[in-house]
């Protein structure tokens, strides 16, 4: 019996080895073909829908007024999110800011996990297209705290498998092929500046916070709720890595 077990075990080991031997990686030409698809991103339609939704709320003029900036300053201001907003008394992402605007203008407040909200958020961020991410994590104590919390959330190993965001996104493993995908450098790959993005595998628009939730779910970590202090902190930390990169919304991701 014992011998049989050993044979069976080594057989499975062999099988798994032969599978892992077939590690495909895409060529540069293949990647270029996918990059070309950005020109006709299905999410362009969703962003156009988001524009309609924002104009229902009063458009960019109302948004600028709500944020207390001039309309010309608006793109630069949006490129600095998540930020601490005095009237909320906390650090918020674009989605929560829009919720505040809906509430204050006595409109129906959309939940954060909502496709209309995603469209609206994507359009709002696209107002800042071509602007450079200018998040300031040292702007005040609130931002400093959020950044520190974000770093802890990013680095802490959680869940049954003891994985953290850092497990796949630490500088040591960048470029390693994991399931045909090179692990991205969050700095160079413009991560903070290309979400919300169209996800080809899901056929829909996803926000950065939504994507991070998906990641937690797949890595068997308890999922952090959208808009919670931890989640916003995580967005602050990840967005800071893309500081200085140009915003290009909507992105297009696998």
């Amino acid at each position: 019996m014992k011998k049989g077990t050993t044979i069976a075990l080594s057989l499975t080991l062999l099988a798994s080895l032969s599978f892992s031997g077939e590690q495909f990686a895409m060529s540069d030409a293949d990647r270029a073909m996918y990059a070309e698809m950005l020109e006709n991103n299905p999410a362009d339609i969703m962003v156009a829908h988001g524009e309609e939704l924002l104009s229902d709320l009063g458009g960019e003029t109302k948004l600028a007024k709500y944020l207390g900036v001039s309309e010309t300053e608006l793109p630069k201001y949006i490129a600095g999110f998540p930020r601490y907003i005095e009237k909320f008394g906390m650090v918020v992402g674009l989605g929560q800011m829009l919720q505040g605007m809906m509430h204050d203008s006595k409109k129906k407040v959309l939940p954060l996990a909502n496709s209309d909200m995603n469209d609206l958020l994507a359009y709002t961020k696209s107002i800042a297209n071509d602007e450079l991410i200018n998040i300031d994590v040292n702007a005040n104590q609130h931002m400093k705290d959020a950044y520190a919390l974000g770093k802890i959330t990013f680095d802490t190993k959680r869940g049954g498998r003891g994985l953290s965001c850092l497990s796949c996104h630490s500088p040591d493993v960048i470029g390693t092929i994991l399931r045909t995908q090179p692990l991205p450098d969050l700095r160079v790959n413009n991560t903070g500046a290309t979400w919300p993005a169209y996800r080809m595998t899901k056929s829909n628009l996803t926000t950065l916070q939504g994507r991070m939730q998906g990641c937690m779910q797949n890595a068997l970590l308890a999922v952090i709720p959208l808009g919670s202090p931890d989640m916003v902190a995580l967005e602050v930390y990840v967005t800071d890595k893309a500081k200085g990169q140009a915003i290009a919304i909507p992105g297009l991701k696998r």
Binding site: M26, M33, E36, M200
Partner: peptide, 14 residues
């Protein structure tokens, strides 16, 4: 005819 040699996912292949 231009197609990728390896598709990232079967759902969207240019």
């Amino acid at each position: 005819l231009k197609v990728p040699e390896i598709a990232e996912n079967g759902a969207v292949v240019p």
